[in-house]
């Protein structure tokens, strides 16, 4: 891919599931970031897929930390690198549970303190590492092991919480659009201060679709508009191409839901509620992008 390192920072020996999009995301993130990068990883799928000590499938330094601590550990690391005069990229790479639930306090604090780091939340919409329990990021209606009848609450609007911290740069992305993702990572790392990316990471075993469909599911999330891609630099919001297209002619939401076993048996009422949420979100984003809100 143009503009990225030819080197690989994740070797082919990870213990990731087949069709894992979060390891795909990380591969592109690290290619964009290059070798002068330290990754801070809280408890999540990424803590497992590195392999078992003393072996590791990553060839950049990875600092594994407790579940709630990624953003705070990255804060300390970024401060220390500054005192050492090093420009090393500090990237926290955390799942949705470690971000929207247990890690949100530390994340909010690190952003408020203008920590010079990039925080990436890869979102597989549940606690995947431990077998798919519900997180605050699980969408309405999705079955998980702790919502066997389908989730009764809507997905937490993480991005608007992050936006309230008024960051120099934040972006959403999806594993199915690697060029867009790489461009955003490179842009984030070119800016000093707190940066945030929220990346949708479809998960074959958790979402219950065939591993070969992992790119298709990601694309469909964007085409239906249930996952919107944009960049925000302070108050300026720029919609990404695929999301602009989805706003003009969205794919039917049902096509996305039907691809995944986790939404099987979802009531029409819940589907309508999700549809309403999607439309509301796109309306707000469009208005903001056009400067009409």
């Amino acid at each position: 891919m143009s503009g990225t390192s030819a080197s690989e920072y994740i070797c082919k020996c990870t213990s990731a599931c087949a069709g894992c999009s979060s390891s795909l995301i990380l591969r592109h993130v690290l290619k964009a970031a290059g070798p002068d990068t330290v990754l801070v990883v809280p408890a999540c799928c990424t803590s497992v897929l590195q392999g078992v000590w003393p072996n590791t499938s990553f060839n950049i330094p990875v600092y594994n930390v407790a579940f709630a601590a990624a953003a705070a550990v990255a804060s300390g690391m970024a401060a220390a690198f500054e005192t050492l005069g090093k420009n090393t990229n500090v990237i926290a790479y955390a799942g949705d549970g470690g971000t929207v639930d247990i890690g949100i306090q530390a994340l909010s604090g690190a952003l408020e303190r203008e920590t010079n780091f990039l925080y990436i939340c890869y979102d597989n919409e549940a606690y995947g590492n431990t077998g798919m329990q519900r997180s605050g990021s699980t969408p309405l209606g999705a079955r998980t092991t702790t919502t066997p009848g389908g989730k009764t609450h809507v997905k937490k609007d993480l991005d608007r919480i992050i936006a309230a911290h008024h960051l120099p740069y934040m972006a959403t992305a999806c594993s199915a659009y690697p060029q867009d993702l790489v461009k955003k990572v490179k842009k984030a790392l070119s800016i000093k201060g707190p940066k945030f990316m929220h990346i949708l990471a479809p998960c074959p075993p958790g979402w219950r679709y065939d591993a070969s469909q992992t790119i298709e599911v990601g694309k469909m999330a964007v085409k239906t508009g249930i996952w919107a891609m944009y960049e925000r630099e302070y108050d300026t919001l720029t919609l990404s191409g695929p999301t602009k297209a989805a706003m003009i002619k969205p794919a039917p939401l049902e096509d996305y839901l039907k691809m995944q076993g986790r939404f099987s048996g979802m009531s029409e009422e819940k589907v309508r509620m999700v549809q309403g949420e999607v439309e509301r979100n796109l309306r707000l984003l469009k208005a903001e992008a056009e400067g009409t809100c």
Binding site: A69, V73, G76, M77, A79, A80, A106, S108, R113
Partner: peptide
């Protein structure tokens, strides 16, 4: 020193851990 006014004690120790592993005094 860089003084990090963290938002909790959990983060205080976490930030010290992140700094210390780079080899600096915390």
């Amino acid at each position: 020193s860089k003084y990090i006014p963290v938002e909790s004690e959990h983060s205080a120790m976490a930030a010290c851990i992140g700094a210390s592993i780079t080899g600096v005094r915390t």
